[in-house]
Amino acid sequence: MCCINSSLTSKLGSGIVDTANSFLDGSGVLVPVFTSGANGSVIKSITVKATGSTSQGMVRLFVGNGELNFLYREIMIPANVQTGVVPAFSLVLPGIFRLQPGWSLLASTELSETFNVFADYGEWENCSC
């Protein structure tokens, strides 16, 4: 008997961006955060966390299919001095976004500063019966 059950497996994608890239057209250094699995993925939130002091700049998020990369969001980075009592910059982008199988979420940074980019997502799997 046929079954259509779908399951979502919770996953965390991550990437470290640190190479300056000022391009908005998908060229230059982009770091993959994760690539969507066989039945696609649902991103629940994306966290951008600096690992040190920052100057005013930008972190950019792209979606790409291996051939073309499309700018999806820009996150303004403020100037911030990290100390023992002042946290480094951090931002959580909530909201559902779905990624087709084979597509990737990628990230870049305007300036040569280090950011960890996390994607909290669910990998979709349809029963193949």
Binding site: M1, C2, C3, I4, S6, S36, N39, G40, S41, V42, V63, N65, L68, F70, R98, L99, Q100, P101, W103, W124, N126
Partner: peptide, 18 residues
């Protein structure tokens, strides 16, 4: 009816263009 599942499978899709 006892065999048919009548359900829908879903797949994430992206459309993107410049």
């Amino acid at each position: 009816d006892s065999v048919c599942c009548s359900d829908t499978q879903a797949e994430a899709l992206i459309g993107a263009v410049r």
